[in-house]
């Protein structure tokens, strides 16, 4: 895409928070520090850019964001391949991997419990209400468990892991990058992928299915309780319905989603961390960036897996 130079200048400078007089096409001084005087009108507020610039501004922003996104996805793929290569050749620090397992479990256990509990409450309340109205009480268990096993279990655990573990990894690796700890590793000829990414990835792969199944179970227990209170449904009836509805395949899909979510959380947060340079304020920015990417991709991949496995034929 080619845009007029002035609009690009304006877009870039405005995003950097720098007032760039050249973008307005009316620079009257050669001193770049005089932008305050040049770019202001008599009331002291910045003059508006011309209409064309204004219209093209969102496009510039989109182009810039899109470019950075493509770069990040490329970095994620490279890191993922390198991590897989390390794992296939047996370069795994199991002690560190188990330490990371402990950290992940410890960090996300309570938060996953809480969110799964309330997801279960809300869902079974809605579903019982509607099904009771149609006289379909006995189907409550089936519908709730379908939603939990196929969608809500993996998503809840994935999003919580992203918020709790992904952000911590992105912040930790960015800090290591900024304080030159990663450079120190390279000078010592220790591979940062092997030393930092692989143990976290293994821990993610081991813990994510556990947390997903746990989230699903907590949600199910919450649902049984709520449907008992709200719809007078005996737990036995609820569980009967669950048994009749849930197939083995559902657990396979559940597991697949958990593995994909673990990969997304760990790889995006590591890629963001290992590719950020700058100062302390960049730690916060990198963390936000990692979370946004992980969550968005979790929802997208969740849909892709669902559409590949459950689409009506």
């Amino acid at each position: 895409m080619v845009f007029p130079a002035t609009s690009c200048q304006f877009a870039i400078s405005s995003r950097l928070g720098i007032f760039c007089p050249l973008a307005y096409g009316e620079s009257t001084t050669s001193n770049p520090f005089c932008s305050k005087i040049v770019g202001m009108d008599s009331t002291g507020s910045p003059k508006r850019p011309n209409l064309l610039n204004h219209l093209l501004l969102p496009l510039n922003v989109i182009e810039d964001q899109f470019g950075r996104g493509v770069v990040l996805v490329g970095q994620v793929i490279i890191i993922w391949f390198k991590a897989i290569a390390c794992m296939l050749t047996g370069r795994i620090d199991w002690r560190e991997a188990f330490r990371q397992c402990y950290l992940i479990g410890n960090q996300s256990f309570i938060i996953v419990s809480l969110t799964a509990l309330f997801v279960g409450f809300a869902m079974s309340l809605q579903i019982s209400r509607e099904l009771v109205a149609f006289g379909g009480d006995t189907a409550i268990g089936g519908v709730v468990s379908l939603a939990l096993v196929r969608e809500m279990g993996p998503i809840t655990a994935g999003v919580m892991l992203a918020g709790r573990v992904g952000s911590a990894i992105a912040a930790e690796l960015t800090t290591m990058m900024i304080t030159e700890q990663i450079d120190a590793l390279k000078v010592m000829r220790v591979d940062p992928i092997e030393f930092l990414v692989v143990p976290r990835y293994i821990a993610g792969l081991l813990m994510m299915p556990v947390l997903s199944i746990y989230a699903m179970t907590v949600g199910l227990v919450a649902s049984i309780w709520i449907s008992m209170i709200a719809a007078n449904l005996p737990p036995a009836t609820f569980l009967d319905s669950v048994k009749q509805t849930i197939l083995d395949r559902d657990f396979g899909v559940h597991f697949t989603k958990a593995i994909i979510n673990a990969t997304l959380v760990i790889m995006f947060s590591c890629a963001v961390g290992l590719n950020t340079r700058g100062g302390a304020e960049d730690v916060g920015l990198a963390t936000t960036r990692a979370i946004v990417w992980v969550m968005t991709s979790i929802f997208i991949f969740n849909y892709v897996v669902t559409s590949l496995t459950y689409a009506p034929r």
Binding site: M176, E180, Q181, A184, L185, V187
Partner: peptide
């Protein structure tokens, strides 16, 4: 083999 003493120490915390 090259040893580098970093400006900010860069020890693994």
């Amino acid at each position: 083999e090259v040893g580098l003493v970093f400006q900010g120490s860069a020890l693994l915390n």
